[in-house]
Write a protein that binds this DNA or RNA. Structure first.
Lengths: 222, 222
DNA sequence: AATCTAATGCGAGCGCGTTCGCGTTAGATT
DNA sequence: AATCTAACGCGAACGCGCTCGCATTAGATT
C-alpha cells in the first residue's frame, strides 16, 4: 500500500530517478515488457484479479520478480498498461445514420467484453481504481478520451438533424456505455448481442427525444 | 486470499463450526458489531477503500483485532455487511405515472450517492466483488433483489398502458441504475440532480418507445 | 572491437497482515 | 445466586509480499 515512498527513498524527490525501462526502451526491455503483459493477460484469463500475484506474473513470464517490481511496482500498474494495450480493438462506425452508428459501436463493445479475458482486465482496472488514486485518474482520463473520440458519431447526427443541435454528445456516449459496465460489474451477467441492441436502441430513442440536451448551463464543456 | 481453509483446519469440514457471533447475537455481540460497522463507515469516509485496514477498524472501534478477524475474516466481508445495512434508505415512489416514478427513484439513488461515504461503500463492494467470489455473489443477488422490488413501478405502468405489455421490467430498472454506476466507477464524476433527471428521462423515453420489450424469448424470467 | 551503463538476475532481509492458543469476561440458563 | 460457555482480550509467532545491495548481461556508443 505504497505510503510516501518519496519520503523514504530520499533521492527520488530531488533527482527524479527515471523508471527502469524508460531510458532504453528497445531490445531486451521491450521483450520483458511483452513477456510480462502477455503473462498477466494469460494469468487473468485463468484465475481472475483475486488470484493475480506479482510472483505468478514473474514465474509465468520468466522475468525475475525484482525486475517486475522495479518496472511496475504493483499489479495494478501492469493491469492499467494492459488495458490501454488491449482496448484499441473497438472501432468507430460511420454508416450515415445515428441508429446504425450506435448499433455498430454497441456491437463492438459487446463483442469486446464477450471475451472473458477482456472482461477480467476491465474488472481488474476498475477494482484497481478504487484502491489507488493514480489508477482512478488513469481510468477516468482513458474513458474521457474514448468518449471524446466516439462523440463524433453524435456530432454527425446533429449535422444531419437527427438529434437536437444542443445535444450533449458526451452524455449520449456515456449512456451508450453505461449498461455494459452495469452488466459487467453489478448484475454480473453475460454480455451478449441482446444487451448491445437494447442499449443502442435506448440511447438512440432518448437522444432523439431530446433527453441529452444541455441544461442551458455554461460553456464548461470546452 | 483464503485458499482452502477447510483443508487446513480439519474440524471445520465435519462439525461446521459456526461463526462467532451467530449463537449469541445479543448483548455484547451486538455492541461489537455496531462498533465495527460504524468504525468501518467512518474510516471509509476519511481514507477510502485503499487505506482501509483491519487494524484501523479494530483501533477505531475499540474491538480487538483478533475478534474482528474471527467474526468477519476480511475487510471485504465487513464492507458487504455495511452495504446491506446502509442501502435500505432508497424508497420506491408511487405517484401514478411512470415518468414521475422513475424521476423519484432516480432522485433517491442520486441523493444516496451524493453522500461521499455511501459512494465509498459501493466502490468498495464492487472492488471486493472483483477479488472474492462470495462478494460477487452477494453483490449480484443484492441488486437482483432490489431490481425485483423496483420492478413494480414498471408493472404498474404496464397496467396503466404507459408502456408495452411485454416490457422487460428488469431491463427498465437496470437501465435506470446503470448511469449512476458508470459515473461512480468509470467516469468518476459527481453524482448530482442533473444526472438523475437525465437518467430518468432516458429510461422513460426508451421504455415508452418499446426498446425494452422481451425479444420473444422463453419464460426464463421466473 | 572495446567501452560504458541501463536493465536484469539473484538472494537475503525487513515489515505487515494474519493466525493461533490460552486466559478472561459477560450474558444466558437453571 | 450459581453455573456454563459463547464471545472477547491478549500477545506470540508464522508466512508472504515487498525492498534492497550487489553481480551479471546486453544493447548502445565510440
Amino acid at each position: 500500500m505504497g505510503r510516501d515512498r518519496a519520503g523514504q527513498l530520499g533521492e527520488r524527490m530531488s533527482e527524479e530517478e527515471p523508471t527502469p525501462g524508460s531510458v532504453r526502451p528497445g531490445g531486451r526491455t521491450a521483450r520483458t515488457r511483452a513477456a510480462v503483459l502477455t503473462a498477466t493477460f494469460d494469468e487473468l484469463g485463468e484465475g481472475g484479479y483475486g488470484e493475480l500475484t506479482m510472483e505468478k506474473i514473474a514465474q509465468r513470464s520468466g522475468v525475475h520478480l525484482a525486475t517486475v517490481y522495479r518496472r511496475w511496482g504493483s499489479v495494478e500498474r501492469i493491469i492499467c498498461e494492459l488495458m490501454i494495450d488491449k482496448s484499441a480493438d473497438i472501432a468507430l462506425p460511420d454508416t450515415g445514420s445515428l441508429r446504425a452508428d450506435l448499433h455498430g459501436l454497441a456491437s463492438g463493445i459487446g463483442a469486446f467484453y464477450a471475451a472473458p479475458r477482456n472482461r477480467r482486465v476491465m474488472e481488474a482496472v476498475v477494482a484497481a481504481a478504487v484502491r489507488q488514486p493514480y489508477a482512478a485518474e488513469m481510468l477516468r482520463d482513458f474513458f474521457r478520451d474514448r468518449r471524446r473520440d466516439a462523440a463524433v458519431l453524435v456530432r454527425r447526427a446533429i449535422e444531419r438533424g437527427e438529434v437536437p443541435a444542443d445535444t450533449d454528445t458526451d452524455a449520449v456516449i456515456a449512456a451508450l456505455g453505461a449498461p455494459f459496465y452495469y452488466r459487467l460489474l453489478i448484475s454480473r451477467g453475460p454480455i451478449d448481442q441482446d444487451l448491445a441492441e437494447t442499449t443502442a436502441a435506448a440511447a438512440y430513442e432518448a437522444a432523439r427525444a431530446g433527453v441529452f440536451r444541455h441544461p442551458a448551463a455554461d460553456a464548461g464543456e470546452r
